[in-house]
Design a protein around this nucleic acid. Structure first.
Lengths: 150, 150
DNA sequence: TTGGATTTAATGTATATACATTCAAATGTA
DNA sequence: TACATTTGAATGTATATACATTAAATCCAA
C-alpha cells in the first residue's frame, strides 16, 4: 500500500493539510474495505454491526432510536432504517415505549448477541492485521485524531 | 468535539486497535461533514470534486474512465456515473477514444476549471479550520496513516 | 384546557458505495 | 482468419448517507 502519493498516483500535494484530508479519506476507504470483507459472509454491514454494538453496550436496557442515532459514528446515518433491517433479520426487537408513545424501544435479541459473540475474535484479528502499527503508534494516532477534531 | 469516548458516549474500548478503528470512522465523518457544507452551495459532492481535481491534474490530457477510477480515493466508487453527473453540469467533456473505441476520454472543461479555481481558497481555508493541528502534528499524522496501511 | 410549538420516528429523494452483470471492442492464439 | 478470452464502460440492484418533510405524541404557555 505505502505512501498516499503512490496509491492515488498524485505527485505532490498543495500543503500538508490538504494531504491529510486526502490521506484520511483514503485510509477510511482502506479500513471499511477490510470490514466489508469481514462482515459480508455474515450478511451484515459495518453500520449494522455498529448498531448492534451500541445495543449490546446498553446491557439489555431498551434504547430509543434517537439515542442510537446520537451514539452512531456517522451522525447523519439513519438509525430508523438500520434498525428496520436488523429487525427483519431478527437481530433486534422493536417495541413502543410505554412512557412515551412517540419513542420506540430497541433491544438486541439473543440471536443478535450470538452473532456479535461469533464475530468478536474475527473483528479483533481483522483490526490487528489491517493496522500495521505498534501499540505505541496506535495510541499516538488516537491522540492525534482526538486533537484533530478540536 | 474532544475525545472519542465522549463523542459517541462509549465509556471504554476493548483495546487501542478497536478504538482506532472507531476513531478513524468518526473522524472521517467529521471531515466529510465539513466538506459537504463547503461544496453543497456549489452543487458539488466531495467525490465529484475529487474527480475534477484528478482531471485538472492531467493538465488537459484526456483521461479514461478506468484511469480516473484508479486514482480515486475510494476504489469502489463508480467513476462512470460520477463523470456522467459532471457532464450533465458541463464541468467535463466525454469523447470516444479514437485509438481504442472501448475507452472514453474525459477532459475537464473551462467551466470545470473555473469552478475549481473558485473553490481553491475556500477548500484551503476549510481544511485549516477543520484540522486543529500544527504543521508538525499534520506531518506526523500523515506518516502514521501511511504506515497504518502498511 | 386549549392550541401552538417541540420532539420522535418514519418516509421521500438524490447521491454514493459495493458489488454483479452485460455488451461492445480489442487481443491473442490455434 | 476464426474464435475464445480479456478489457473498458455502462448498467442493475442493495445498502448507506444527506438532507427535507410528514405525522403523531407530548409539552407548555395563554
Amino acid at each position: 500500500m505505502g505512501k498516499i502519493e503512490e496509491a492515488i498516483q498524485q505527485k505532490e500535494f498543495k500543503d500538508p493539510y490538504n494531504k491529510l484530508v486526502v490521506n484520511l479519506l483514503y485510509t477510511h476507504s482502506y479500513m471499511v474495505t477490510t470490514q466489508n470483507c469481514l462482515f459480508k459472509p455474515h450478511d451484515l454491514s459495518p453500520e449494522q454491526y455498529n448498531v448492534l454494538r451500541i445495543l449490546r453496550g446498553q446491557n439489555g436496557a431498551p434504547t430509543t432510536v434517537s439515542s442510537i442515532q446520537d451514539r452512531m459514528l456517522n451522525k447523519m446515518s439513519n438509525a430508523s432504517r438500520l434498525v428496520d433491517k436488523l429487525k427483519m433479520k431478527e437481530l433486534v426487537k422493536r417495541e413502543e415505549c410505554p412512557s412515551d408513545r412517540r419513542q420506540v424501544d430497541v433491544v438486541i435479541t439473543q440471536k443478535g448477541l450470538d452473532l456479535l459473540a461469533q464475530l468478536e475474535l474475527l473483528v479483533e484479528e481483522n483490526n490487528k492485521n489491517a493496522l500495521h502499527l505498534s501499540i505505541e503508534e496506535v495510541n499516538q494516532l488516537n491522540d492525534l485524531l482526538d486533537k484533530l477534531r478540536g
